[in-house]
């Protein structure tokens, strides 16, 4: 059963009718409905294409959070062989909101850090809906430092609404953990490539996305605060999330324009969840090509490249 977003209602109706007719045809009634099915399928595909070529920023936010969207676990499963998950920050605990581990990516040993939201009630609770606590970021730091020592390039998959706001998280230094994680990214002598696969939520995202190359999926979002959060603070009305999404420039297309990210990875019509394998493969290709550009570069060059990239952000903008 496919989940539809509110704005996908016309598609849901058409695809629903197609399903009904197909069931009818399969039931053995020799009705001449093949043409009708084909026509409806064409209209459904057309409606899907129409809607997805002009998604508003708010609609993109919903696609980015789609429950069926491929998550970090899916990317790891498809792209990483010999996957060996590693756990714990060696200080306090294990935080499954951030997955970390070692494996092999297209013949290259790598370290991977990925934010995981979970896909059903049980896994969502286990992964805390992808909202990491300090120990998650401290685990990420530990893996980054290890990757650096063993000369392993790093893949980071960003998908979080933000770092978790809770008493325990504050008590254990959420802000410090994020700041140190960003700093750890900047110190790496190995390349780090980040892909925003869903939601890039504020400090919780930048902590693992201070990378040599940053890419976004076509319908992912990356922002300083969620549209809902901005609406409640700036408009004093959380119902204004649509306006906030529009004004804040949170889409991949906006971020390329502002020189924040290095490229957009296309999604199939209708979003990544309609063809996960295709998207994951495309992401793999982009990461592989990005890594290749750092082959033979010195550790100092790789570090300097990252610093230059971030210092340059915003300096050439036109008003």
């Amino acid at each position: 059963m496919r989940s539809y977003l509110d704005f996908e209602k016309p598609i849901a109706d058409l695809e629903g009718k197609v399903q009904e007719l197909k069931a009818l045809a399969d039931s053995g009634n020799a009705l001449p409905i093949d043409d009708d099915i084909a026509k409806l399928e064409t209209s459904a595909a057309q409606a899907l294409a129409d809607i997805y070529t002009r998604l508003t920023p708010w609609q993109k936010a919903q696609v980015a959070r789609h429950p069926d969207r491929p998550h970090a676990v899916h990317y790891i499963e498809k792209l990483i062989s010999d996957w060996t998950p590693l756990s714990g920050d060696r200080n306090f605990g294990e935080d499954a909101a951030i997955l970390a581990g070692l494996g092999s990516f297209r013949g290259r040993p790598v370290a991977v850090i990925g934010q995981e939201k979970g896909h059903d009630t049980q896994t969502r609770i286990r992964h805390n809906f992808g909202m990491a606590r300090p120990e998650g970021y401290r685990k990420a730091i530990r893996i980054m430092e290890m990757a650096d020592r063993f000369n392993l390039p790093l893949i980071s998959l960003v998908d979080t609404a933000g770092a978790y706001p809770g008493i325990g998280a504050e008590e254990r230094g959420q802000a410090e953990a994020i700041a140190r994680s960003t700093q750890a990214c900047l110190r790496l002598g190995v390349p780090i490539v980040s892909v925003v696969i869903g939601e890039g939520g504020s400090g919780g995202a930048i902590a693992i996305a201070t990378a040599n190359r940053v890419f976004m999926l076509e319908h992912s979002i990356y922002s300083v605060i969620s549209p809902e959060g901005a609406a409640s603070i700036l408009w004093k009305d959380s119902a204004k999330a649509q306006d906030a999404a529009m004004n804040m420039r949170i889409t991949a297309q906006d971020l390329v324009r502002f020189g924040i990210i290095d490229g957009i990875i296309e999604e199939p019509v209708g979003g990544a969840h309609r063809s996960p394998d295709q998207v994951i493969e495309a992401v793999g290709g982009v990461i592989e090509a990005a890594f290749a550009t750092f082959d033979g570069k010195s550790r100092d060059d790789i570090r300097a490249d990252r610093r230059r990239k971030f210092l340059a952000i915003g300096r050439e903008l036109k008003a």
């Binding site: 990214c185 930048i206 922002s223 924040i260 952000i313």
Partner: peptide
Amino acid sequence: EGILSLMQMPR
């Protein structure tokens, strides 16, 4: 300043 403000953290 949206994402540009977030970028001041790594910068």
